Simulated scan of single mutants.
Amino acid sequence: MNGVMERLPGFPALPELFGWVEGGIPGTHLPAGLHGIRVEEHLKEGIYVLRAELPGIEPDKDVEITVEENVLTLRAERSEEKTEKHRTEFRYGTFARSVRLPSGAKGDEATAQYKDGVLTIMVPVPEEKAGTRTIPVRRG
């Protein structure tokens, strides 16, 4: 298995199963009432793209996105409807996730869009040009 733990189909990954913070330190748990956010990320044509699963929220009032010291933090809150339920597996409360942005990312130029329960955040990451520099040699 080359040191990689495979999971059986239909079973959640260990961090998800035990409520650990994905991408965090194994064995650490989220505080009570705080839930993790499932994300996927990729870099495409100079843009860092983070997609987050956030079904059932009002993005204009329930989501806060901040960037501080090259760390993007996403917080959302979903309130529980006050009806008597026979059963619920929905999660309510505060959801949060922080990710480190790639080097050179322009967090102050980030944009976000919410569609079909998925929040997409895009952050420009300019390509660094590796120019040639001539170093003069002085006589000593």
Results as ranks from 00 to 15, higher is better:
R133V: 15
L101V: 07
L14A: 12
T94P: 04
K82T: 09
G107V: 09
P15D: 10
A96M: 08
I57Y: 03
R38V: 06
N70F: 09
G33E: 14
A32P: 06
L119W: 02
A32G: 04
H86S: 07
L43Y: 01
P102N: 08
A13N: 12
K44Q: 12
V21K: 15
G107D: 04
G46S: 06
R51M: 09
F90V: 02
V39Q: 07
P12A: 10
V99I: 14
F90T: 02
I57W: 02
G24N: 13
L43T: 09
R87L: 10
D116N: 10
L119N: 03
I121W: 02
L54K: 03
D62G: 02
G46R: 05
G104A: 14
P15S: 07
R100K: 14
A32N: 11
P136A: 11
V118I: 13
E40S: 15
L72P: 01
F11E: 14
L17Y: 13
R133M: 10
T73L: 02
A130W: 06
M5K: 10
G117P: 02
G3M: 11
E68I: 07
R87W: 06
V4D: 13
H86T: 12
E77I: 04
I25N: 08
K82S: 11
P31N: 13
A105K: 12
N70G: 09
A112N: 03
G24R: 12
D116F: 02
K115W: 00
I37D: 04
Q113H: 07
E22P: 07
P136H: 05
L119S: 04
E84H: 03
D60T: 07
T66P: 06
V63D: 09
E109L: 14
K44Y: 03
G107R: 03
R78I: 00
L34W: 12
E80H: 00
R87K: 05
G117D: 05
G46K: 07
G23F: 08
G56W: 00
P102I: 14
L43P: 04
V4F: 13
F18L: 15
I65Y: 00
G104N: 10
G56S: 05
R7W: 11
G36D: 15
E69G: 05
F95C: 04
G140E: 10
E68H: 13
L30R: 15
Y92N: 01
L34K: 13
G19Q: 09
Y92D: 01
V71T: 12
E109A: 12
I47W: 00
G27L: 14
G93L: 05
Q113M: 03
Q113W: 01
E58D: 15
A76R: 03
K106D: 12
E80M: 03
E77N: 06
R100H: 07
K106T: 06
L54T: 01
T66C: 04
I37H: 02
A112R: 09
P26T: 12
D108F: 01
V99L: 11
S103I: 08
R97Y: 05
L50F: 06
H35T: 07
R100A: 11
T120P: 03
T120N: 01
N2E: 15
A13R: 15
V67E: 15
G93V: 05
E127A: 10
T88F: 00
R91Y: 04
